[in-house]
Write a protein that binds this DNA or RNA. Structure first.
Lengths: 209, 209
DNA sequence: TGTACATCAGTGAACGCGCGTTCACTGATGTAC
DNA sequence: TGTACATCAGTGAACGCGCGTTCACTGATGTAC
């Protein structure tokens, strides 16, 4: 009880100290739970426990705030891909670049399925000139995979330019469609997912199994 | 001048006669030009030259109207695919199922690139229980292509179940990303497009060239 | 170490706006006799 | 063929609401001397 009120008092200090990031985090939570259309400046300020006006100290307008939330969502996706890749453990006898690509694609798709609203905001259109690139970037992680595939001798060099596009579009398309529930039941989704990932490897001329 | 005023008078009759379809057409035009967020009930009524209340004679609410516009957009996509397929002319010496699949995929992608806002609304989530299936349906056209590919002997029967999913996700993913301008310049897009379509044929085990 | 003061990061009230929807209504159309 | 009347498809005014943004402000913090 005492602790609670102490915490509350801390939350009510005049200077928030971390409002910029807090707003972005609140935005991610709000979108994930209530969908993209529920994202508003007043709504976000309310959740964060701050007046609407305070937002303008950190973002020029709602558009810019949304753009940053979108970027944060892409970074979340990047982290999930990275984690999945890192879980593929090296083995002195085996080269793991193929497994890493599979894991990356699988994580991308899972993000779309399990967090459809975050997936949606990650790829909205917006105009915000002065935005740094996301880090980690899903696109760059994918390109890293492709490079490894080549240096391990699994992928032909002449496929270097087309490989990332082929992999990205297939996996992105699947994630987009599945996140809208257009791929049927859970079992259907699971089967279709492995079909698509196998399809990617086939079109890269890499034998996964 | 006289004709103009006659037309205007006709437009001002009390009974519109075609309001249901007019609203959907107005919706498509509005979305294409001004984007999905500009779609409102009042806005649509204004464009159509009718009071906001009149809309409720034909749609239970805005959600249902949006769902019908979305469906109409999918049908537009279906028509573009169908037209592209029909332009592939039969030749007594050649079987054209491969060319038709290529044309279908190409048309799907072109729709995403040239009409990004219509592409967006075609695949939004919505809840509308009592909606007939779109006709022509892009998904069914694709499946027709696959069947032809098999009966022409180009595609193995064991690929029947995975083929449409592989083709759809790749083409849809490309269209979605390109429609957001994430594929770079026009030349990049054109190159990437043929890489993706070739990738689809490769993963189906069909040699296009 | 204490004080004056500039700067920073918030508040609270108010703005105009356009939205979706409801209400009571009315003009136009179609139908039965 | 004309008339009475039910039904259909619109109108116009009003509702409450929440939105993004602006304004003048104030409390908290950091810094120079």
């Amino acid at each position: 009880m005492f602790t609670m009120s102490t915490l509350k008092k801390q939350a009510q200090v005049f200077h928030h100290g971390d409002l910029h990031d807090s707003l972005i985090r609140a935005g991610l939570k709000q979108v994930e739970k209530q969908g993209l259309n529920s994202l508003g400046l007043r709504q976000l300020a309310l959740i964060t426990g701050v007046s609407p006006t305070a937002v303008y100290r950190h973002f020029v307008d709602l558009e810019h705030l949304k753009a940053e939330i979108s970027k944060a969502s892409r970074e979340l996706l990047g982290h999930m891909i990275l984690d999945a890749m890192n879980k593929v453990k090296a083995n002195s006898k085996r080269k793991i670049s193929k497994e890493k690509l599979w894991a990356a694609g699988s994580a991308y798709i899972d993000f779309g399925i399990t967090k459809p609203n975050l997936f949606e905001i990650a790829f909205i259109k917006y105009e915000s000139p002065e935005l740094e690139k996301e880090n980690p970037s899903p696109w760059e992680l994918l390109n890293g995979c492709i490079d490894e595939l080549i240096s391990d001798g699994f992928l032909k060099k002449e496929h270097r330019s087309s490989a990332p596009i082929i992999a990205w579009t297939a996996v992105h398309g699947f994630a987009a469609l599945a996140s809208q529930g257009m791929m049927g039941s859970k079992a259907d989704v699971s089967l279709a997912k492995s079909q698509v990932l196998n399809g990617v490897f086939d079109s890269l001329g890499v034998n996964f199994h």
